[in-house]
């Protein structure tokens, strides 16, 4: 058996697997809620058939839950589909705002398990870059994992995008425990390879609680 020796390819596969597992786990939860509440509706109907009066508000509550979870599942599938299409072309023009929003959406469960919230600061104007979207998502996904480890529960990490001359910065702010993280924890070798491949730089400012990925030459 030959395992991938390319660190970028391996990191990408690991990120793809991690993300797919997370989304499928969330889908399972949404389906479980739909199934259980559909069962509950059926229970109400059986009771009603036997002459028990059921408050219509109970039907409504359950119907709303089913509707909410259907919407949630649909959004999960949309995100997964967009993520899957990030490998369509190795290099393409990408609206960075959309990519960062997708990154945040794909990372919500990982953040929730650490009791950390994620928000995306809106940009004043759309920023487009020519990049390798899947490699960039992999790098940013690894950044998020590290950022979550560097943030105390109950806090909110803010993601942002800012033009910097001909470059563009992707910012991770409010990392309340960043100063306490060991310096070697990030970037790892595969992240360094991704940074090189993407013509990008990484900088961490512990006291400011900020990490920055700078993409060169938009």
């Amino acid at each position: 058996m030959t395992l991938p020796s390319d660190p970028i390819g391996l990191a990408g596969l690991q990120y793809f697997g991690r993300t797919t597992a997370s989304v499928s786990h969330e889908l399972k939860n949404a389906l479980a809620i739909i199934k259980e509440n559909a069962g509950l509706l059926n229970d109400y109907l059986l009771l009603a058939e036997k002459g028990t009066t059921i408050d219509p508000a109970r039907y409504k509550t359950v119907a709303v839950r089913i509707e909410d979870q259907t919407r949630r599942a649909d959004q999960l599938i949309r995100n997964m589909n967009r993520f899957a299409h990030s490998v369509d072309s190795p290099v393409q023009s990408v609206v960075l705002d959309d990519l960062v929003a997708l990154l945040a959406a794909l990372s919500l469960r990982e953040a929730a398990m650490r009791q950390v919230a994620l928000t995306v600061r809106p940009t004043q104007s759309t920023i487009t870059v020519t990049t390798a979207p899947f490699a960039l998502l992999t790098l940013l996904g690894n950044c998020i994992t590290f950022a979550l480890a560097a943030t105390q529960p109950g806090q909110t990490i803010t993601l942002g995008i800012a033009p910097e001359g001909h470059d563009v910065q992707i910012l991770f702010d409010s990392l309340t425990g960043l100063a306490d993280m060991p310096g070697e924890a990030f970037p790892k070798e595969s992240d360094k390879a991704l940074l090189t491949a993407l013509n990008a730089r990484f900088k961490a400012d512990g006291p400011a609680g900020r990490m920055v990925i700078t993409l060169s030459g938009r």
């Binding site: 939860n29 479980a32 809620i33 069962g39 509950l40 229970d43 909410d68």
Partner: peptide, 15 residues
Amino acid sequence: DEADLASALAERLDM
């Protein structure tokens, strides 16, 4: 941690 699952399951068990 999925409240809409836990509550529905609990109600169905109660029934």
